[in-house]
Design a protein around this nucleic acid. Structure first.
Lengths: 95, 95
DNA sequence: ATAATTTGGTTTATAAAATAAACTTGTTTA
DNA sequence: TAAACAAGTTTATTTTATAAACCAAATTAT
């Protein structure tokens, strides 16, 4: 009847991050912060969780002298996102 | 960009309850329990929350001699659900 | 009859999450 | 060179979700 919802994706900010990355497939930390309206602290934590789960990968480089954190979605992440959307539909269809 | 997600609805079990009620507009506690696979305790808590928010109304009656808890969605609940679905779409469209 | 089980829940306790606040490190700018 | 800013991280706090324990009444078994 109702398919379980991946708790990693069923969270507003993480879902927003994934949503951004799925269409951009590369984004810098400050950009994600701006687009989502999240605080840096919250974003940092949620990025870590997605990264730990292997849904995104995080590259730490420099842009000139300043640190620059780049996020990309992984294949696993893409799959998980699609599965999540599919599962969600079992709740949404006002049959 | 991303519309905020009503935290009351953005929770697996509560969403399932609302999903059931939106198409059935009346359901008994044990039926919801069975359909969602939730424990009675969890269901009781989440039904209370939806009820407190005015998203559903709960009628306590008897079925023969046994207590019977009937849940119905309210107009507010219906509206909130629709708004939630709309907001969700801002995260899901893989533009 | 009465003991055990089942039904239909509620209340309380616990574990996990989300989020914000505080902090750090290095870089510009005044 | 002091103050402000950028880019995050770490820690602390507050909510939540969830399960476990409990309760009362009704039914079934002995």
């Amino acid at each position: 009847m109702f398919q379980p919802l991946d708790p990693l994706l069923h969270a507003e900010l993480r879902l927003a991050i994934m949503s951004l990355l799925i269409s951009a497939d590369e984004a810098e930390f400050p950009y994600i912060k701006e687009q989502t309206g999240a605080t840096a602290g919250n974003l940092s934590v949620q990025v870590d969780k997605l990264s730990a789960a292997g849904y995104i990968e995080v590259e730490k480089t420099f842009k000139g002298k300043r640190p620059c954190t780049i996020c990309r979605i992984t294949d696993n992440g893409r799959q998980a996102f699609e599965a999540y959307v599919k599962a969600l539909k079992s709740y949404l269809k006002v049959k």
